[in-house]
Design a protein around this nucleic acid. Structure first.
Lengths: 122, 122
DNA sequence: CCGTATCCGTATTGATACTG
DNA sequence: CAGTATCAATACGGATACGG
């Protein structure tokens, strides 16, 4: 499924970095999680994330749009309404890597905390 | 395997962020990948990553040590020798989330590029 | 409500030079 | 070789105020 074609791992590493950059920015993954259900209005996304500034939220949404992970739909109504939703690609990222991270932490949280304590004590 | 205990996703999100922080720093995941085989000396790790400064490499290694993802073994020899290796915890992170990211990108690289092009054009 | 513009504090990266 | 110290550049997250 994933041949390790490069002897020294450089090619694999570069692919890995490209993928990690999608998750590197603080709020991007959280926006994806927030959109796992229904499409949400901008304000709803902001509330779901807790305390995030308008500027940072806009940047995150633009990145996600630029990478084709979410879609933006604008309705021409009196009170402006815009809805963001996951694309199939965005959903695959949620169901794959993102869920893998969550599952890993759920299964190794105790080990991680123990290791952190041990390292701090030593 | 992963119950979604929080109705609004906040708990899940926090766990996710804790896990993502382990992968957020630029070089940390790459160091883990570099150590997937044998234990490596500091210099060997540095070379494996390409062009990384001593300072940044030290910071990355210290973080990985503090989180119990790698071990450091020092040999009392004439030319100083230090070897870094993955812990079982670090290896589980490599085999789980890290591999998931790599596999996802390998399987969706074409979609990602197409979406990026489309977004740029529109 | 949606989104942009401006300004700021901090964190991260990195180059360089130096010590054990 | 291993690791630290110092300094510069910049990217990031964020608060605030303003415009569509």
């Amino acid at each position: 499924m994933d041949e390790d074609r490069s002897p020294d791992g450089l090619i694999v590493d570069c692919q890995l970095r490209a993928g990690l950059e999608l998750l590197a920015h603080t709020w991007d993954p959280l926006v994806i999680v927030a959109l796992r259900g229904e499409p949400l209005r901008r304000r709803a996304v902001k509330d779901a994330l807790g305390g995030v500034s308008d500027k940072v939220l806009t940047e995150a949404l633009h990145r996600l749009l630029a990478n084709g992970l979410v879609t933006r739909r604008s309705f021409a109504e009196a009170p402006p309404r815009v809805e963001y939703a996951l694309t199939p690609l965005g959903r695959s990222l949620l169901d794959g890597p993102l869920r893998a991270v969550g599952a890993w932490l759920a299964g190794h949280a105790d080990e991680l905390l123990a290791a952190q304590d041990a390292a701090q004590a030593g």
